[in-house]
Amino acid sequence: MIMKWLHKFSSPPYFYALSGKLIKWLSVLLVAFLAAGLYGGLVLAPADYQQGDSFRIIYVHVPAAWMSLFIYMVMAVSGTIALVWRIKLAEIVSVCSPPIGAGFTFLALVTGSIWGKPMWGTWWVWDARLTSELILLFLYLGLIGLYTAIEDKRTASRSVAILALVGVVNIPIIHYSVEWWNTLHQGPTVTKFDKPSIHIDMLIPLLNMAIAFKLYFAIALLMRSRNELLQREQNGRWVEEVLEGK
């Protein structure tokens, strides 16, 4: 049943039509979660007793940093599926993810830097967390460059998947860097086995923003995948129908 559905979903014309509808519905949800998250984070949440209002940067910084890792895993998993089972759609997902991941990694670094200046007194330190996140940005940029540099799209996708797999080693390093090494960066407040050490009024907007960013990723990924699919399948008959229905 599930396999049958998956098979149908991965057929290009079906995916193209369904993703068009999905993008609309997910956008409505995105606006709702974004509004709730921003209102909760910028207005309702009380100022932090140590950091004052500067802590509100957390609502873009932390979800962006989570996304930078999450997207990498999505890319590595779909890349593996593409390598092993040669599923076209998995291939497209893995090559459409890097630009979105690079955007979130860039944001995590920039907003972190802007937060670091008033709190640590410096824009940047070469510590483990910041350096490994910067390496992640370079990995993403490398993957984008690799994909555009190779003419044949199937070969390019396979190279991207392999390089992505090699880079997976960086992911646990980023996550545990604040525990393994001494650093200016604060430890985790939410993603740990203990109870989160953050007040509920501060936590709820953070979770709303995290969901909003996930939705954003889904939308951006679907949009990019549709374009990639159109380009790869431009001689298919279903594209004719898309052009007529436009």
Partner: peptide, 9 residues
């Protein structure tokens, strides 16, 4: 700091 972080985002 707060508004430039949100602006860039």
């Amino acid at each position: 700091y707060v508004w430039s972080a949100y602006g860039v985002s």
